[in-house]
C-alpha cells in the first residue's frame, strides 16, 4: 500500500536516503582519511599523500611504547570481562528467578550506572579511588570500568535467563544438585550463548571506554584509547601521521572484536537495549 505514494512522499523518501548516504559517506571518508594519512609520507595540497610508507607504525611501536600499552589494555579488558561475568551473571540469575522485597530498588540500582554518563560519576569515583590509593593503578582502572559493566551484564542476562524453563533447574534440584553444582552442570551450559554475547559486549565497550579509564589511570595503567587521547592532545610533539597510525592500531583492535561480537549479537544491543 506504500506503492502508490505521491510525488511529495517519494521526494521525502529520496531526501531521507540522501541524508543517510551523506552521513555514511562522511563517516567512511573520515575513517579512510585516518588510514590513508597513517601510511603517507607527506600530504600537502593534494588528494593523496606524495608516497606511502609504513615507518609511522614502526615509530608508534618504538616511541609510544605500544607493546606495554597493548599489554595493559589486554589485562584491563580481560579482568573487567571476567569479573563482570562472575559478579553479574549470578546476580542476573537471582534477579530473574526470585521475587524478593527490594527487588525493584535493586533493579533501579543496576539501571543508574547505565543512565548516568561516566564523566558525571567518574569525578567522584576517581576522588574515592584516590583516597583509597587505588587510582593510578591497574586495579583502580579495573574497578572503575566494572561500575557500568556489572549492571550491563545483569540487564542483558535477565531477559535471557527469563526465557529458560525453570523446570530444568527444579529437576536438577530434585535429583539433589546444590547451587554450585547446579551452576556448573546445568545453568552455565544453558546460559552460555547469553553469557558469550554479554561478555563480548562488555569487552568491546571496555576497549572503547575513555572517560572512566582516563579519570582513574596513571602513566603505567593507561589503555589504548587514553594513550590516543594524550597523543592527539599533545599534537605537534609528534608527526600527525604517527598519531593517525596510533589511531589505526586502536581502530583495528576495536573493529576486530566488534566483528567477532556482531557474529553473536544484534547491533542494537551495543547501545544497551536488549531488543525491541
Amino acid at each position: 500500500m506504500w506503492r502508490n505514494a505521491g510525488f511529495g512522499e517519494r521526494a521525502w523518501a529520496f531526501s531521507v536516503w540522501l541524508f543517510t548516504g551523506f552521513f555514511l559517506l562522511n563517516l567512511f571518508a573520515l575513517i579512510a582519511a585516518v588510514v590513508v594519512d597513517s601510511f603517507g609520507t607527506h600530504w600537502f595540497a593534494t588528494w593523496l599523500p606524495a608516497g606511502f610508507t609504513t615507518r609511522w607504525y614502526a615509530m608508534v611501536w618504538n616511541e609510544f611504547g605500544l607493546a606495554p600499552l597493548l599489554i595493559v589494555t589486554a589485562e584491563v579488558v580481560a579482568a573487567v570481562t571476567v569479573l563482570a561475568g562472575l559478579i553479574g551473571v549470578p546476580a542476573a540469575y537471582a534477579m530473574a528467578r526470585r521475587e524478593f522485597p527490594g527487588k525493584r530498588a535493586a533493579l533501579l540500582l543496576f539501571l543508574l550506572p547505565l543512565l548516568v554518563p561516566p564523566f558525571t560519576y567518574g569525578i567522584p569515583l576517581a576522588t574515592v579511588l584516590y583516597r583509597a590509593h587505588l587510582a593510578g593503578t591497574i586495579g583502580g582502572v579495573i574497578l572503575a570500568n566494572l561500575v557500568p559493566t556489572v549492571p550491563f551484564v545483569i540487564l542483558i542476562m535477565m531477559p535471557f535467563i527469563d526465557q529458560i524453563d525453570p523446570r530444568i533447574e527444579a529437576a536438577a534440584r530434585v535429583f539433589g544438585a546444590r547451587t554450585p553444582r547446579l551452576f556448573a552442570r546445568i545453568l552455565i551450559p544453558l546460559f552460555a550463548p547469553g553469557i558469550l554475547s554479554a561478555l563480548l559486549l562488555v569487552l568491546v565497550r571496555t576497549i572503547g571506554m575513555f572517560e572512566l579509564t582516563f579519570l582513574t589511570a596513571g602513566p603505567s595503567s593507561q589503555t589504548l584509547v587514553v594513550a590516543l587521547y594524550y597523543a592527539v592532545f599533545a599534537a605537534g610533539v609528534r608527526p600527525a601521521q604517527s598519531i593517525d597510525a596510533m589511531a589505526v592500531v586502536y581502530m583495528g583492535t576495536t573493529l576486530v572484536w566488534l566483528l567477532v561480537t556482531l557474529r553473536f549479537v544484534n547491533p542494537a544491543q551495543i547501545v544497551g537495549r536488549t531488543g525491541p
Binding site: A33, V204, G208, V225, V232, A247, L258
Partner: peptide, 10 residues
C-alpha cells in the same frame, strides 16, 4: 564503538 576520541582524531 570507536568512541569520541577516535572521531575527534578523524
Amino acid at each position: 564503538t570507536l568512541g569520541t576520541v577516535l572521531v575527534a582524531e578523524g
